[in-house]
Simulated assay, not measured.
Amino acid sequence: MYVAVKGGARAIDNAHAWLAEERRGDRTVPEMTVAQIREQMGLAVNRVMAEGSLYDPDLAALAIKQARGDLIEAIFLIRAYRTTLPRFGGAQPIDTGNMACDRRISATFKDVPGGQVLGPTFDYTHRLLDFMLAADGDVPEAAMGDPAGDPVPHVTEFLNSEGLIQPEPESDAVPRDLTREPLELPADRALRLQSLARADEGFLLGLAYSTQRGYARNHAFVGELRIGSVAVEMDIPDLGFAIEIGEITVTECETVNQFTGSKTEPPQFTRGYGLVFGQTERKAIAMALVDRAMRWEELGEENVGAPAQDTEFVLSHCDNIQATGFLEHIKLPHYVDFQSELELIRKLRAQAKAAGQEDAT
């Protein structure tokens, strides 16, 4: 057994060395720096920060480099690192109403105060390969408009002023922290939103798509999608007031959904909500759609058995780190388990063969 352990350890060390060699690639090609990843692969960095629950572009870029571009592995690295960090306190809720918007669009109203701001987006590109990028040519500078000015109101406030959209209840209750406490069901909306914010983007996208195709009776409009910087403030007990400790970039999406009303609520619109680190609009929209689908019970709607309506199913399977761990553990040694099942199959086959011979006689 000792020889086998030593042999296994040596093989693992060699595998690590080979992994480092593969990560580096052709040494005649300049090595990619963390700064290059941070600045030129921003959307990948944003996803790692969002699903890793840690806002630090440099660390996210480092994790992507270490993981050879495997974003789920990078997210795993970030989450593992996050557990080593000391906790000094909690920040106040960010005020997205004071966001300095780089991008702000609405699919429900054409003319809104502050205007439609397209910002940096793939929405209007032709999805054709740009071979100029392979030539490492200079990128033309964008014709920048005025920098972000005064804060702009949320589009759903227009509906709210007429009582046409369900108001969101306010609460001073401190939500549970999913990064410090295990998920417990049933989960309130605050905990569900936390789980969705760090859920796997692909899983969430599939669920959101299913709601649009009829698996939840969830017809939605994007009331507003905004991306920009918001201040993060923290209460300092010694000072007796909050101070700004930095800024983060977030993506916020509010969907406007049809609602026919219930015994206690008049016909009105309802909301789905998504808020994610960085420019992560596909994730934020998907999050809002799934959030709305899971609200069926509190709104008195019918559960049609759609996957996105099953809160336990969604929250128990949306975390890519848990899913990856359970999926990939089956490639590790299971010699003893398999041998026991192999012996069982052999025994059953022998019994079936003996029974067949007895029937023949």
Rank of each mutant, 00 (worst) to 15 (best):
H329A: 15
V336L: 15
T249C: 08
N257F: 03
V222C: 03
N98V: 01
F76Q: 09
Q166C: 14
F88M: 07
E224C: 02
E281F: 03
Q322S: 14
Q166I: 09
E281H: 11
E31C: 06
G272I: 02
G214T: 14
R349D: 13
P237Q: 07
E252P: 00
C101K: 00
A60Q: 07
P167F: 07
P30I: 01
M49S: 03
A288L: 06
F313T: 03
L205Y: 11
L77G: 02
D146A: 15
T96N: 02
D359L: 08
T121Y: 11
T249D: 12
A67M: 13
R10W: 07
A11N: 06
V314M: 06
C253D: 05
T211L: 10
I64K: 07
L59Y: 05
A208H: 05
P86E: 09
A135C: 02
P175R: 09
M41K: 14
D136G: 10
Y55P: 01
R38S: 14
G272P: 04
E21S: 13
E254M: 04
G149N: 09
T264V: 13
A61L: 14
L85F: 08
A4I: 11
G89R: 02
G149Q: 11
G325P: 02
A220D: 08
E254K: 03
A286N: 12
V112G: 01
E233M: 09
I78K: 01
T251C: 11
A15D: 10
M49I: 08
M287S: 05
D56F: 03
D136N: 08
P169G: 05
Q116F: 08
A199L: 07
P167D: 10
Q36K: 10
A135D: 12
T83V: 12
L118S: 12
V112C: 02
S106P: 05
A308V: 12
L204D: 01
F259Y: 15
Q279Y: 01
V45E: 01
V230I: 10
I243K: 06
H16L: 14
L204P: 03
E254Q: 09
G149F: 10
I12V: 11
N303P: 04
E21A: 13
A9Y: 08
R180M: 13
G8W: 07
M294S: 09
Q351P: 00
Q66I: 14
Y81D: 11
A288M: 12
L164D: 09
D291G: 07
L344G: 00
R47Q: 13
F241Q: 08
V112M: 13
Q279A: 13
L178S: 08
T28W: 00
T96P: 05
G223W: 00
F109V: 03
L191P: 10
L128T: 06
M1C: 08
Y209E: 15
A143Q: 12
Y215W: 14
V48L: 07
A355D: 11
L71C: 05
D238E: 14
I72R: 05
D111K: 04
V174Y: 13
T270R: 03
